[in-house]
Amino acid sequence: MHNTRTLTVEVWRQSSAEDDGRFVAYDVTGVTPATTVLELLDLLNEQLPDGEQPVKFDDGCREGSCGKCGVMVDGVAHGPEFNTTTCQQHVRAFRNGQRVRLEPLRAEAFPVLQDLAVDKKKSLRTVVKAARGPAGMKALTNAGCISCGACVAVCPNGSGQLFVGSLLTELPPLMKDDDERRERTEKVIETAGETFGPCSTLGDCTEVCPAGLPLENLSAVAREYLRNQNKTRHQH
């Protein structure tokens, strides 16, 4: 096993949502180039000293398709590899003895529950619910979005515009008429404004998005917003 290495993993430990968190460093041995970030956490939990609580983190299919997992690896949501979920990120980029910092997905919309586990469902779901009914979920599925929340976490503005924009790109064709489209897109934009920050078109979101959603989706928010404004003006 000449390929195994030891990494110093700095993990965010936070016992509950109310507590202050802090980084704790652990040495993790037996890491191979093929180890994924989640497997690294598994190794860490196996090697924890007696009496220490295992590190809690969001886990899912480990196939990169469910969108449940997600941590920040050295400041990047999911990890250094582009457009790859945390469970599919291999640690081959890290050399023996290097330090890796793992923290929860950071955003005001994603409160930390414990250690690396965050509640991202609530805020993402409020936006989808604003599109009412299964149409919102259908739109996200059509866009290819797996609702992992990495775009929000990596954004220096805490903006969810890639998520919201992708929803609004795919929502209009699912609407039965124009009134429904206006009503629902308006609600989505309003809810998103209350939940996420403003978009500065930096494009960090498209670097981490596992679905590889394009930058063009961002602009759907403004398009639908202006469209709704025009209608309002005609009515008066």
Binding site: V76, G79, A93, E108, N157, G158, P198
Partner: peptide
Amino acid sequence: RAQQAASRPRGQKRLRPRGRRRRPWDVAKR
């Protein structure tokens, strides 16, 4: 609004993202 939405725990600065090279235009963007 942006700083509010991207707030981090007190005393925790954003890390320089690993594995991201920034060209001059990318720096200009930010």
